[in-house]
């Protein structure tokens, strides 16, 4: 059993490192992206082996749902921009990719020059060697697990990671929500968005799948959020699942949906941070310190913040995927 587990670890890690290496060595960007999606899948298995089902859940939602779609759509945006610049006319039908022309160069990176080989290799080897040496000589310690375990009864929840995220180190989560919002503001500052056009779906299969998947995704998101108080799950994972479902809807919708109006969208996006800040300030006034809760109020407040954070993360991920300020809110 143990020997087999070690073999599994070795094969998995060899696969992960090999996939990362081939991904970074690709001249074809599409190949690199597919390898990166596979890399995410193998990483989720590694997180499972490291007894981190919470991380595996987040990696599953983000790696399978969001990063892949984001990278594939970015490649297509690059291709379409390059096509337009090279032909000097708007890119109307999709470019014929079998034609032998420079358009495809948008998705191609020539192999690197020889003269950077040795310096880069030396640098990477030195850094990697130092890291490995440091990690191998690190003293054994149990980390903060006993401390967290000793304080679980005041946290208001039964799952240690949720307790750390939303009670013991709540400022991390608060600042993380702020960073997501700042990334979104950065993307919005680049201009209005390139909306992926709605298209009539060819055949009944895609609409049928959407009708099955989107409700199940919403139920799963709510379930994962609810599970977070006592088992692996929580606001990030639920937000990522709902965000991925939203991205699926943006990609596959057969009709132009009505644009989300500006004010509710902005309210939803900032809701998580705003509610967190309000609760934090209340804690400061009430004498529990910034982002501290009274023990009796911990559970309801955590649930309230998690619901708002889930919605904000989901909306922000969809908005980051669309990339760009919504059209039609010049006012």
């Amino acid at each position: 059993m143990n020997g087999l587990l070690v073999l599994f670890d070795l094969v998995l890690l060899a696969g992960i490192v090999g996939v990362a290496w081939r991904c970074l060595a690709s001249t074809d960007l599409f190949r690199a992206v597919v390898l990166f999606i596979t890399f995410g899948l193998l990483l989720a298995l590694a997180w499972v082996r490291l007894e981190a089902p919470d991380i595996a859940l987040a990696e599953a939602a983000i790696g399978a749902g969001i990063t892949g779609a984001l990278l594939l759509v970015t490649l297509e945006r690059l291709r379409s921009i390059m096509a337009e610049r090279h032909t000097g006319r708007p890119h109307t039908p999709p470019p014929d990719p079998t034609g032998p022309h420079a358009l495809l160069r948008a998705l191609h990176d020539p192999p690197p020059e020889r003269r950077t080989f040795l310096p880069a290799l030396t640098f990477a080897l030195v850094v990697g060697g130092l890291l490995v040496t440091a990690l191998w000589h690190q003293p054994q310690s149990t980390g903060l697990e006993p401390v967290v375990d000793a304080h679980m009864d005041v946290s208001g929840v039964d799952h240690p990671i949720t307790a750390v995220l939303l009670n013991f180190r709540a400022y991390d989560t608060f600042l993380e929500l702020a960073i997501v919002l700042i990334a979104l503001l950065g993307a919005w500052s680049l201009g209005r968005h390139d909306l992926i056009p709605a298209r009539p779906a060819p055949g009944p299969i895609l609409p049928g799948t959407l009708r099955l998947l989107v409700p199940v995704a919403i139920v799963t998101g709510v379930y994962v959020l609810w599970a977070g108080s006592h088992a692996p799950g929580g606001a990030f994972q639920a937000g990522a699942i709902l965000g991925a479902a939203g991205i699926l809807l943006v990609l596959a919708r057969p009709r132009q949906l009505p644009m989300a109006p500006g004010a509710p969208l902005r309210l939803g996006l900032t809701g998580g941070v705003a509610l967190f800040l309000l609760v934090g300030l209340y804690g400061l006034v009430a004498g529990h310190g910034f982002l501290g809760y009274a023990e009796a109020w911990a559970y309801p407040l955590i649930i309230l913040i998690e619901v708002a954070a889930t919605l904000s993360i989901a909306l922000a991920l969809v908005a980051l995927f669309v990339a760009g300020r919504p059209t039609g809110d010049d006012a």
Binding site: A69, L72, A244, I247, L251
Partner: peptide
């Protein structure tokens, strides 16, 4: 649940509009 998202992105990405800026 999310296995289909990458495939949908792969197929539906074609025909993005020109820069709307």
């Amino acid at each position: 649940l999310l296995a289909v998202v990458a495939a949908v992105a792969f197929v539906r990405q074609h025909g993005l509009p020109e820069p709307p800026d």
